[in-house]
Nucleic acid binder design. Structure first.
Lengths: 229, 229
DNA sequence: ACAAAAGTGTTGTCTGTACACCCATGC
DNA sequence: GCATGGGTGTACAGACAACACTTTTGT
């Protein structure tokens, strides 16, 4: 490839689409933009943008996320490259989808309004433009695979969280109930949580302890592999 | 995205790179091309090509594979999109990598010579141009994940194979020895192999039975999920 | 009869899962 | 003192891992 000239090679529009996951304590949600114009008026769309000539694809994804959320240093992962000929109605656009996990509390109302963005429950997907529905389904599946063996789910929670919140998160991601005794035993046996003195008192009289994710401890255990589910 | 014009948006060179896996009964191998010119003379490269304006990205990957191997209807899967700014020396090129699993016997000496291609053992990788080494490492890892739960490994074997060959394949992919009693019990318990009357007689006096992969049976069991390893 | 690879069973350990009661606290 | 959610233990079942001998057959 290196020695041929690239003169007559077709050049492509390269887009980024971001599946932005959040968790409100009950449902797994996605951040979408509602279209105000035809075509596809009223349908939801993922946040997107184009890859420029002077940034890497990963950097473009981070930029798109930053433009919508104002957030940097976010857990983000490439999902898939979507390259069907007719996937975009306007033109031939190849899109690289990424998914991001953010703490929903970090996302302000002002930002939502400024970008006309909305959190939508992913329990059953609304209509989405183009192939965005497929992207979200793929992202949900990949998220399930990922959180089963990697401690990335914490990115969807506040820095300190109760065990119940963590369990609710896994239940939302897998759309299935989990047994709290088995769940807590499994999580504790990993030794990746640090119990704080502080208790969450709002939702019960007894109060439940807060935990934080112990990144340092995780690094030590990483090579052995973890199984959350 | 739909309503803006795309006039001033940067257009990218989009490449395909193929990691083509084969298995010779002993080693897991990759099909590479040896560069005869500077830069990077003598280094190995993956087979690649560009995505044209009139084909999907998947179709481009199939075309690239076909051009090198003459083979169609091959197991192929998208690996990752590699988009670092400086990954290609000549120009800014974004590459979408695919990996393919082929029966090494289907690949003739004539084709190898015609394309100056060679099978190289993946036990320890040779030097590769650009980020191709990373691609191959990623592909090996993804192959491991895939064959652990999906019956795609059969694509690397002849249509009929002995249990020993199948085990050797898994040992090559995981680079670890497996216990033949446990392995055969596990495979048989899945009910996805059909035992033939015929025996392979070349490598032992007793002879070992050939099996074929029972696709129909697999389809029935697919939803339950399988675990090969 | 022997060499060489094929084929086959058992046991202990671990992991997963199902299930129900006591605890601490604010009112 | 009682209502509410928090926190904990046990027992059974299935999966996994370790391990060695018998069978077949060509020479």
């Amino acid at each position: 490839m290196g020695s041929i000239t690239y003169k007559h090679v077709h050049r492509h529009l390269l887009a980024i689409d971001c599946i932005i996951f959040g968790f409100d304590g009950e449902d797994l949600k996605g951040l979408f933009v509602k279209r105000k114009l035809e075509p596809q008026k009223g349908n939801w769309s993922l946040m997107g943008g184009f890859v420029s000539g002077i940034e890497s694809v990963d950097a473009a994804a981070e930029r798109v996320l930053y433009e919508l959320t104002g957030l940097g240093n976010i857990y983000m992962e490439q999902l898939h490259c979507y390259g069907a000929l007719d996937r975009d109605i306007e033109a031939r656009v190849v899109s690289i989808a990424y998914f991001a996990l953010i703490n929903i509390a970090d996302y302000s109302k002002e930002l939502l309004e400024e970008h006309h963005a909305t959190w939508v429950s992913l329990k059953k997907l609304p209509d989405l433009i183009f192939d965005h529905r497929q992207m979200v389904e793929d992202a949900k599946e990949k998220l399930r695979e990922k959180v089963a063996t990697h401690p990335v789910g914490f990115a969807l929670l506040p820095p300190k969280f109760t065990l119940k919140q963590l369990q609710a998160l896994y239940e939302a991601i897998y759309e299935m109930p989990l047994d709290k005794r088995n769940f807590s035993r499994k999580i504790f046996s990993m030794n990746i949580l640090q119990k704080l003195e502080e208790k969450e008192k709002a939702s019960s009289r007894k109060g439940s302890f807060y935990f934080i994710f112990d990144e340092a401890q995780y690094k030590l255990l990483e090579k052995e592999g973890l199984k959350f589910i």
